[in-house]
């Protein structure tokens, strides 16, 4: 079934939110609020390779901040 995230022929971008989380995203679609395009624009595999290489810490950023706050208490 045609899922917009499963098309090898389509062009994609990589989005990131304030939590540092990444999302594959079809480039023809409007970028949802709170997300910014980062990394490459290209085929699916290239985008996912970029994510694999760059999203190295999967902890949400708000957690890291909360942790720092706790530690400094």
């Amino acid at each position: 079934m045609a899922n917009p995230f499963e098309n090898e022929e389509s062009e994609y971008v990589v989005l990131m939110n304030d939590e540092g989380q990444c999302s594959l995203w079809p480039s023809v679609r409007e970028i949802p609020a709170g997300w910014t395009a980062v990394g490459p624009r290209g085929n699916r595999r290239d985008c996912l390779n970029w994510v694999e290489a760059n999203w190295t810490d999967m902890r949400p950023k708000s957690l890291a901040a909360a942790q720092k706050k706790q530690a400094s208490k």
């Binding site: 999302s23 594959l24 390779n49 190295t56």
Partner: peptide
């Protein structure tokens, strides 16, 4: 979930930006 353990690419293709969310920057799982 936070995502798939140590699988950033797989996480980014299944947990994607939510275009219908109440708050900006949310994700949805397909």
């Amino acid at each position: 979930a936070r995502g798939y353990l140590r699988r950033p690419a797989l996480t980014a293709e299944r947990f994607v930006a939510d275009p219908h969310g109440l708050e900006p920057g949310g994700r949805m799982y397909r």
